[in-house]
Amino acid sequence: MLRWCVAPAACYEWRDWDGQAVVFVHATGDTHALSPEATSLLVVMRARSNETHATPAWMQFANLADGDGEALMQGLAAIGLVRYQQP
């Protein structure tokens, strides 16, 4: 099972409006608009930032189909907002 943790808050700037977030990632200087699903997941992960989170929990939370949750996390990892943790 894949396990993930959210990047430290100092690594990025965050604003969200009406359930959709935009982030500025310091390491890359890039700005991204997150989907509502990604925003929902990251709101939860940021609130419990010391925990690692397993894929099925996010899928259940966001009502994502099998595989979609994993793809979402891979996308967030690619822009530097989450990290994969070895189990």
Partner: peptide
Amino acid sequence: LPRAEVFMQLVENTFNYS
């Protein structure tokens, strides 16, 4: 319009954003 969408338009149109 949703603010996040407009925000990205502003970023695209900002000359000295980087």
